[in-house]
């Protein structure tokens, strides 16, 4: 839960708020949602230095996001990413990513989780049918798959970042 008031203190809170802003600007088809999110957070930081926030950080930031979005509508070039940046971030073909996945800790994964993921991705099994076979609830299966997939995705993105393919920090996928 968000804290009432407060500052952009913890990195977790900062990352969560930044991701919420990214979602906000993505929904509005902004071409540089992460830049807009960073701009918005910077302005909140500056405001917070001058005076106390009138409401919670999250609610206040939400209000600031609308202002930034309106500015972007008026002059999107102020915030636009370079075409090269975008190309760098999406140029990694799926085959390379697969190799990355192979290199990370899939083999260290619990054998039952590997089996679960194989049945889910290869056999096309639904969470409900897997739940019936494994004797777990559908929610339990979904949650397990979700967590394992999240770990793998973060590992992939972290490797991409470490390999220098990402020119700009995007943060790990939150959740």
């Amino acid at each position: 839960m968000s804290e009432a008031g407060g500052e952009l203190g913890s990195s977790e809170r900062y990352a969560a708020l930044r991701l919420k802003l990214v979602f906000y600007f993505e929904r509005r088809s902004c071409n540089c949602p992460e830049d807009l999110a960073d701009e918005c957070l910077y302005r909140v930081f500056v405001y917070q230095k001058k005076q106390e926030l009138p409401t919670t950080l999250e609610r206040f930031t939400f209000g600031f996001a609308l202002n930034v979005y309106r500015e972007w509508l008026r002059d999107s070039s102020r915030f636009a990413q370079s075409a090269d940046d975008v190309a760098d971030r999406v140029s990694t073909p799926a085959g390379d990513l697969s190799r990355m996945v192979a290199e990370i800790s899939v083999n260290q994964m619990d054998p039952l989780d590997r089996e679960l993921m194989e049945q889910y991705y290869v056999d096309g099994r639904s969470a409900d049918s897997l739940a019936a076979e494994w004797g777990l609830s559908s929610e339990g299966i979904r949650s397990r798959i979700f967590r394992k997939r999240r770990l793998l995705m973060n590992a992939i993105l972290a490797q991409k970042k470490a390999a220098g393919e990402t020119n700009q920090a995007s943060g790990s996928i939150h959740g």
């Binding site: 990694t92 697969s98 997939r149 793998l152 995705m153 993105l157 995007s170």
Partner: peptide, 17 residues
């Protein structure tokens, strides 16, 4: 771009398995 990265990552995971 962020969503495409997530999509590629998930596609890679599925392809890997």
């Amino acid at each position: 771009v962020r969503r495409r990265e997530k999509w590629e990552a998930q596609r890679a995971i599925a392809a890997f398995f």
